[in-house]
Design a binder for these strands. Structure first.
Lengths: 331, 331
DNA sequence: AGCGGCCCGGTAAAGGATTACCCAGCCAGG
DNA sequence: CCTGGCTGGGTAATCCTTTACCGGGCCGCT
């Protein structure tokens, strides 16, 4: 592997000049730049990343720590982050915390250790691991969920309002006993969606009963069980607000097994406009979150913070959009 | 940020001893290890990754370059790779080539530059960028698709056989004019699936017509258009073999729009057992590829090659499993 | 008692790029 | 013609860790 000295020797200049030429510093003669460039090409020279990062005290890399690579919501965020980061020459590395505070903490350690320029993460809740970033002064932005007592940049969705609107919609469609299947207590988005659901019941003067609510992991299996339980109660719900698309999979499965048809028998609105939501029968009504945009906004905030660490922290809240399809209509 | 010298000073030993103690070398006195450990904890010492990688000439990182983060097949592979890599203390960074040779090449450059220990990738086809890895002697493993004229470790699925079996199944169910929607010409998996489809037609003595075949990007939009075209021909197919799950989304959408019901009207088998395949109505028959296993096998091969670069290259071919569900039954 | 060998741990080199600092040479002005 | 200033580029320090090499001290054997 060729080093900068090899290039310097071949071009007949010093390593300093090679570095300057290749990094586009203005103080190098045109002709020399060309000669250096050619020598570098000839040798297939690639700067040694670790050496550069060591000297610069920072790698042109941002780490993106999300809680589930298999969740389309998060992969769409990843796309947004990538597109913005690449524009300015940063690489993105994707890490999968699996909603597990320990894994999250490990990835944060790696990020610190590798001296990444910044971190974007959907925090699992425990603030402790994020403190490490703050302590070291590494730039970071939280997405999807706020950080308790930590004034950092955050990009959120007004998920409570969205949940309320979705529930309003179900009620307006004539469903009477609307239930809710949401994520674990303590996970902010799960709490917010439940709160929005309750807001709607309250303003529609419907009694809110814990018999209509189930909380479980944000996964298909948990939601499957929850839906099966809800539906086999004496007084089952006739509509369900489901807090993400993985859960929707479990819920639909449970309804199939009970011979209950979405829409006609039980109204369904789920969070996240997964690619399969439209082509299924009946098409699934969803709350579409602006995931890609969350990613781009977060990336821009991060870049701004990397450039100027004294910026004051901002909170950006984006809106979600209810898409009404067949699963929330009786007909 | 504390450095190793700070730790050394606090513990009253040399930096060499700190390094040895923290890296678990045997030749350090118990008591000293404890003292060093305590000093490190006290200072919150994290070794500087770039410095370590520079010295070691290699980072404990493997890069995974896949063609689509939004495709569940690839994210499942990612899970497999991660699980194995983490067991032995490697980190995994995920990169998204978007089926784009230029992006792939850029990520390979980054991987080389950062001196990652190894690379796992689903090659976009052009071999050129992979040559760079071979030239530099970086360990790598190809998944999902073989590399033309490159003897490297490869993990494949016998996708031709699987396509044949799926087509056989459709024919056995009484579908008469089976069509096929597959990926672009030149993409190996797409070609293989088409070949398997033709194998089945041939052995069942059905005429094979190009009117029943469409090739497009491995995406929903292309498949949507293809299915719409196929179905509005004078003599439309009464069954379809669809080459991946994103395409299945597009196909189901097109069928809905034409008021055609999967199963009863048109038999469908799609590749990849996406999470939503079962709960939809009717449940989607699929060819389940062992994606997670591909990931674990590839990771193990990569680790073996990192440890011993002279190993001879192996090709591992895994089988796929046909899961018959409602979309391939007339009833 | 003397010496060989072993165990532990210190000293310093190495790894490769960036950059502060400095110097040579040239031009222009006096 | 001399000198001050500016420009372009070289020298060498620096980033931090790992590890080759070396040496001190102690044990045990002869």
């Amino acid at each position: 592997m060729a080093t900068i000295s090899d290039v310097a020797a071949l071009a007949g200049v010093s390593t300093a000049t090679v570095s300057r030429a290749l990094n586009g510093k203005a103080t190098v003669d045109r002709e020399l730049v060309a000669r250096v460039q050619q020598a570098a090409d000839e040798l297939g020279y690639r700067p040694n990343g670790p050496a550069r990062n060591l000297r610069r005290q920072e790698a042109a890399v941002v780490a993106l720590i999300i809680s589930d690579v298999e969740n389309p919501f998060f992969t769409a965020i990843a796309r947004g982050v990538e597109d913005v980061a690449h524009e300015v020459g940063y690489s993105v590395v994707l890490c999968n915390s699996d909603e597990n505070a320990e894994k999250e903490s490990r990835y944060i350690d790696v990020a610190i250790q590798e001296r990444v320029a910044g971190v974007i993460l959907s925090p699992t809740g425990t603030t402790s691991s994020v403190d490490k970033l703050a302590a070291r002064g590494t730039a970071f932005v939280a997405v999807d969920r706020p950080l308790p007592q930590q004034d950092s940049d955050v990009v959120l969705v007004d998920t409570r309002l969205a949940a309320r609107q979705a529930t309003d919609h179900l009620i307006a469609q004539g469903y009477d006993r609307v239930g809710c299947i949401t994520g674990p207590a303590g996970v902010r988005t799960a709490d917010d969606r439940l709160a929005g659901y309750r807001d709607a019941l309250k303003s529609a003067k419907r009694p809110s009963s814990t018999k209509l609510v189930r909380r479980t992991e944000y996964k298909a299996a948990g939601a499957h069980k929850a839906a099966a339980e809800l539906m086999s109660q004496p007084d089952p719900p006739d509509a369900l607000l489901v807090a993400n698309s993985a859960m929707a999979v479990g819920v639909l499965q449970a309804l199939r097994e009970q011979g209950v048809r979405p829409g006609r028998d039980v109204g369904i609105v789920a969070f996240d406009d997964a690619p399969w939501a439209e082509p299924v029968d009946p098409p699934l009504s969803v709350v579409a979150q602006p995931a890609y945009e969350i990613g781009t906004v977060a990336a821009r905030l991060l870049l701004a913070r990397i450039a100027d660490s004294t910026r004051t922290a901002t909170t950006t809240t984006l809106g979600a959009r209810l898409i009404e399809r067949g699963s929330s209509h009786r007909t």
